[in-house]
Amino acid sequence: MAVFKQRWQRWLQRRIPPATSVLLTQRRIFIIPTRIGAAFSLALLLMLMAGINYQNSPAYGLTFLLAAVFVIAILHTYRNLAGLTLHAAGGSPVFVGEQATLRVRLSSNGRAHQSVALGWPPQDLQHFDVPANGLAECELIVPARKRGWLRPGRLRVESRFPLGILVTWSLVDLDQAVLVYPRPLAGDMPVAAGTREDDEDQGARVLGQGADDYQGLKTYQPGDSKRRLHWKAYSRGHGLLVKDFAALAGRDLWLDFSELQGDSEMRLSVLCHWVLSLSERQQPFALRLPGLVLGPDNGQTHREACLRALALYGQENVR
């Protein structure tokens, strides 16, 4: 069984190679009858029996008409998927335990496509309509269960429109991934304050932007916190100024993986919590993981770098 699965995956990989944008063509679309189709066929068989046993031409006729509809429905069902293009449209990082949202854009190059279902089985598929020559923006939800890159695998695109008696589907790899950060967990701050050699030093070494000590005013630049805007100066006509604080190096916060107890997932969760809360307070900090030091620094970029490092800690395919 496993051998077959592997072969199937390899075959799929060759047939529909990963790409951020996939046009569904006849090479990439499969079609089979559904259970409804089987029930429909059974009904047709009964009708045919009535036609034969009663020697009734109209009964034959209706049976054949519906059988022909079944066959024609193959073309219609296929057509509802063919010519549709799927584009990966990204997704935003989430924390473990949340629902990750992956965005997929469906675009039609011609006719309208009705009730196209997208999703990753065994989860429920979500249905979308794509207008003729138009777009549909789909947000697909995947539960984030593990930190690291969440790769939901091949996306199932399927359609049963118009009659539901046939299902046509494709499995596309849009090369999508969402970063999943560890689940934040409140705990003691794993702090190692300052560097050991500087113990004597009582001076306030200025170390870039911080939140501890007021240093003076500087002109506002996009990206500066609005909370620190000097409104009084603005009202006096001095332009936009921000109050500049300096962080005291002696009180730099070092979030250290090795200072924590417990298994590594738990430590990462605690670190994640502190990264979030310190960033919230705009307090500079450094993160020390085995083999990696980030900071000290603060700001959005630093926060994301830290979270990413936490998410990918210990994982091989770091990208």
Binding site: I52, F64, V69, A73
Partner: peptide
Amino acid sequence: LLAQALPLMLLLFLFFPRFG
């Protein structure tokens, strides 16, 4: 759908063998 099925239906009607 019915209109498109019509030619196929006629074919079936003509050639599907009839039994007692």
